[in-house]
């Protein structure tokens, strides 16, 4: 089963998405900031990364760029909120494959993942 890396500094969000994905049969790994996400990407090679933007230590955009540098084929979906239009745009230019706006519905997240895995 596909392996998904969830990156968000908010534990509640990670838990919520984990539950959602595990319920659909995905394998889930979590990271609480960008730096840890880059580490996790190297060691665990997830199929899809769900990446928050505003995080301490290393933000999502930087982490996206680092992950894409490691693996140009990396499939990263940004998790974003209102008021982050410029960052999302920048993320897309930097190779993010999709973005989902918080608070998101289950279907939105799942469909973003299925699309990328297709």
């Amino acid at each position: 089963m596909a392996k998904i890396l969830i990156v968000d500094d908010a534990e509640f969000l990670r838990m919520r998405i984990s539950k959602m994905l595990i319920g659909d049969g995905y394998e889930v790994i979590e990271a609480e900031n960008g730096a840890l996400a880059v580490e996790a990407y190297k060691t665990q090679k997830p199929d899809v990364v769900l990446m928050d933007i505003t995080m301490p230590e290393m933000d999502g955009l930087t982490a996206l760029k680092e992950i894409r540098a490691i693996d140009p084929k990396a499939r990263v979906v940004m998790l974003t909120a209102l008021g982050q239009e410029s960052v999302v745009l920048e993320a897309i230019k930097s190779g993010a494959r999709d973005f989902v706006v918080k608070p998101f519905e289950r279907e939105r997240v799942l469909s973003a993942i299925t699309k990328l895995l297709a």
Binding site: N33, A35, L36, I53, T54, M55, P56, E57, M58, D59, G60, L61, T62, G83, Q84, S86, V87, E90
Partner: peptide, 15 residues
């Protein structure tokens, strides 16, 4: 952009 990213001006060492 930095702001929306929640970046701090000094890179933090602890990763």
């Amino acid at each position: 952009l930095e702001w929306e990213l929640g970046r701090t001006t000094q890179p933090q060492a602890k990763t």
